[in-house]
């Protein structure tokens, strides 16, 4: 067990924070989309770097990955990856309230990713008394070959990644994707401090 692993209490606390953030984010989203959004309780796993590389390179039908960096106070930073499977992306323009010919498939993916990432992380940041800034989201070119390359070329080395499975059901169709939060080593230490502080307050 490395120093970057979370204790059971820390893990529970983090999962709780993510659950709440995800719930509030989907509530905001529902109001924005003006439709009923049903959010399944997200499954959260923390995975180590090697494991993640393996899982991602094994996923055959990964169609697109959108990456977006986030930066907060107290050294809380990282990169959010939104991973889509082939069947996930049919009706995103619809979901976002655009006409299909108004924006390309790439732009649809980038837009929905940015909305999911920023609404979720904004709420998450608020819960830990923080505030986030974001990089422009970027669609990784042809996900399949480049994902592991991208992960290796990260500007930081990371040991821990949080994999959050998001599943939205929007009235007559479902929307699925995986959000993976890559957290650099230094930021993990900072998150652990924050979690300990929250745990101490209870």
């Amino acid at each position: 067990m490395s120093e970057f692993h979370l204790t059971e209490d820390q893990q529970d606390c983090l999962e709780e924070l993510i659950n709440i953030a995800m719930g509030q984010a989907s509530d905001q989203l529902a109001r924005y989309l003006d439709t009923f959004v049903y959010l399944k309780v997200p499954s959260i796993e923390s995975v180590d770097a090697k494991e993640l590389m393996q899982t991602l390179s094994q996923q055959e039908n990964t169609m697109a990955v959108v990456s977006q960096g986030f930066f907060g106070y107290e050294g809380i930073r990282g990169e959010a990856l939104l991973v889509y499977q082939e069947e996930d992306s049919g009706r995103i323009a619809d979901l976002l309230g655009y006409e299909p010919d108004e924006l390309s498939q790439d732009e649809q993916l980038i837009d929905i990713s940015s909305i999911l990432t920023t609404t979720f992380l904004n709420v998450f940041a608020r819960q830990i008394d923080n505030q986030m800034s974001y990089n422009a989201p970027k669609l990784l070119p042809s996900a399949k070959d480049n994902l592991s390359e991208h992960l290796q070329q990260m500007p930081f080395s990371w040991d821990l990644a949080l994999k959050v499975n998001i599943n939205y059901q929007v009235t007559d169709y479902s929307f699925n994707c995986n959000m993976i939060l890559l957290i650099p080593e230094t930021a993990i230490t900072n998150i652990k401090h924050v979690l300990d502080r929250i745990l101490a307050e209870f």
């Binding site: 905001q28 109001r31 924005y32 732009e107 837009d111 940015s114 909305i115 920023t118 609404t119 422009a136």
Partner: peptide
């Protein structure tokens, strides 16, 4: 409207437009 309503930043890259 998205920016106002969700209070989140939004982006538009030359690669798309």
């Amino acid at each position: 409207s998205t920016v106002l309503q969700l209070n989140t930043p939004s982006f538009c890259s030359w690669e798309q437009r």
